[in-house]
Computed example of a mutant assay.
Amino acid sequence: MKPKKLFSGRSGRGSVLLIVGLLVGSAVIRIGVGAGQAVATENPMVSEVKEEESKPKALTGSGMSPEDKSRMSEMLRTFQEREAKIAEKEDQIAVRMKALSVADEQLQRRLTVLEEAENSLRGLLALADTAAEDDLARLTAVYENMKPKQAAPLFEQMEPAFAAGFLGRMRPDAAAGIMAGLSPEVAYSISVILAGRNADVPKG
C-alpha cells in the first residue's frame, strides 16, 4: 500500500511557503527583540534618556533658575531690613516729637505764668508809684502848712537833693520862707540843685 502524500500539487506547495513565511517572520521578531534588549543592556543611558523624555518636565517656579531665586531672596531680605530700619527711625522720631510737644506745652505754661507775674508786678509798681506820689504830696502839704521856723531845721538835716525835691513841689511863698531859715551853705546847695533842674527844662 503506497503512503499518502501530505501535500499534492499546487496546494501543497502553497502551504509549504506559508509555513516557511511564518517561521521567518517569527525569527525576525525574536532577533529584533533580542537586539533591543542587548542595546538597552549595553547602553543604559539610552533608556534613561528615553524615560526622562517620556516624563513631563517639572517647571521651576515661574521658569526662574536657582540663581535668580537666590538673588530675589537676597533682595527681599534687604528690603525687609531697610523697612525695619525705617520703621525704627519713624518710632524714634515719633517719640522725640512727643517729647518736644510735652516740652512745648510746659514752656507755654511757664510763659503764661511769667506773663501773669509781669502783669501783676506792673500793677504793684504802678500802685507803689501812686502810693509814693500820694505820700509825697501829703508830706509836701504838711511841710507847706508848717511855720518856716519849724520846717527850716528839718530841711537843714536833709540831704540837699532830697530837700530840693520837696521845695520844688511846694508853693513858692512856702518854699521861700523855709529857704530863709536855712544856713547859707545849705541854702546855696539846694539853690544849685533847683537851678540845675530848671536848666534842663526845655524853653518854649
Rank of each mutant, 00 (worst) to 15 (best):
K4E: 05
L6P: 07
G9M: 01
R10N: 15
S11G: 06
S15N: 14
S15P: 11
V16D: 15
I19F: 15
G21C: 10
G21W: 07
L22E: 14
L22R: 09
L23P: 05
V24T: 05
V24Y: 04
G25E: 09
A27N: 02
A27Q: 07
A27D: 01
V28E: 01
I29S: 04
I31D: 13
G32I: 00
G34H: 05
Q37N: 05
V39E: 01
V39F: 12
T41S: 06
N43E: 11
P44K: 06
P44Y: 11
M45D: 15
M45R: 06
E48K: 14
E48D: 12
V49M: 05
E52L: 08
S54N: 05
P56L: 00
P56K: 01
A58Y: 03
A58S: 05
G61S: 15
G61T: 15
G61D: 11
M64G: 14
S65P: 09
K69R: 14
K69L: 15
S70R: 15
S73V: 11
S73Y: 13
M75Y: 09
R77G: 06
T78V: 01
F79Q: 02
Q80W: 02
Q80K: 05
R82G: 02
A84C: 00
I86R: 01
I86S: 00
I86D: 03
E88I: 13
E88G: 13
D91L: 14
V95H: 12
V95T: 15
R96H: 06
M97Q: 09
K98T: 04
K98L: 02
S101N: 07
V102S: 12
A103V: 04
D104G: 12
D104P: 07
Q106F: 01
L107W: 01
Q108C: 04
Q108F: 10
R109G: 14
R109Y: 14
R109L: 13
R110M: 02
R110T: 11
V113Y: 13
L114Y: 08
L114C: 06
L114G: 12
E116K: 09
E116H: 10
A117E: 08
S120E: 12
D129G: 12
T130M: 14
A131K: 06
L136P: 11
A137I: 11
T140P: 11
T140Q: 12
V142Y: 04
N145M: 05
M146H: 00
K147T: 06
K149L: 01
A151F: 00
L154Y: 05
E159A: 03
F162Y: 12
A164D: 00
G165H: 09
M170G: 03
P172T: 10
D173W: 06
D173I: 07
A176G: 04
G177D: 13
I178Y: 00
M179F: 02
S183L: 04
P184R: 11
P184Q: 09
E185L: 14
V186D: 15
A187N: 06
S189Y: 13
V192A: 13
A195H: 12
G196C: 01
R197Q: 03
R197T: 05
N198Y: 10
V201I: 01
G204S: 00
